[in-house]
Design a protein around this nucleic acid. Sequence first.
DNA 1: TCCTATTCAATTGTGTACAATTATTATATC
DNA 2: GATATAATAATTGTACACAATTGAATAGGA
Lengths: 154, 154
Amino acid sequence: MANDNGDYESLRLQNQVCFPLYACTKEIIRQYTPYLKELNLTYTQYLVMMVLWEKETVSSRELAECLHLDYGTLSPVLKRLDQTGYLTRERSLEDERLLKLTLTDEGRKRKSSAVRIPPAMTECVGLSQEELKTLYFLTNKALRHMESHSGKDS
Amino acid sequence: MANDNGDYESLRLQNQVCFPLYACTKEIIRQYTPYLKELNLTYTQYLVMMVLWEKETVSSRELAECLHLDYGTLSPVLKRLDQTGYLTRERSLEDERLLKLTLTDEGRKRKSSAVRIPPAMTECVGLSQEELKTLYFLTNKALRHMESHSGKDS
DNA sequence: TCCTATTCAATTGTGTACAATTATTATATC
DNA sequence: GATATAATAATTGTACACAATTGAATAGGA
């Protein structure tokens, strides 16, 4: 009934949606690199700094949640940012389990240098504002769907 | 003239397009993991296998190009797939620099188990066919733009 | 032919990324 | 108030990911 070609059609690299998503993400991050290098940051570290530039102080737990990263990834990243001198790590007084991260003056200074990164990256990706909005909408929709449908199906 | 809020608006995590792309990619790969574990594959190894399932034999150079991976990533991945017994690595006779990868019977067998992965993943992402097509189009467009505008501007 | 530049691949070093385990602190239950 | 449970981080182990370096094979030019 079904022919062999048709059965395996879905397994072709060209027919995967995730693959260009994966390749595109890596390529964008690669394009970020030279800009971030001037700030002594990696992309992951830049994500942490964006949160701190906005909130000044944040718990490790909040950070893990909003960046979708676990402690195995976050712990060494935070240690490096501490060593670089962009943030401080200290235990919360109310709850000794919580790690409180605070932006340092040195870290705050980098914010003004960072403002030119987003427009440069938008330029580099080569999509229109409309297309970027669509991309933003679709990836967020997929993310929300996967979050609500993973793990805790009781 | 310009207010401080407006200047830094573009630096907020919520206004980044790359971030949901990055988070979404990681989440999809995480969702792949249990399916791929049954085949003894990681996501990167699965990408290599998809190419081999289609072409039976391929050079390392071609693989690096179509998967957008460099040899630093690819070499150990190929070594592991060799150890698992899904492919063989041998030097090309015509050009000793080239590494020729060939699918083994054991590797070929896994293809029939893999066919149920793509529909399961489509389901899991939670986007319509139309939305997936749009996502595919936009990420490929961005990829092509970045490829043609990076490095060799003479 | 000899020399140089290029291509292909592997290796090294740094930095994620995540599952699984461990340790510490808080909370809930009795 | 002692004990079980849950929450928060850190650590360990495996596997990418990529820049930079190295080394071998090939191609191209004087």
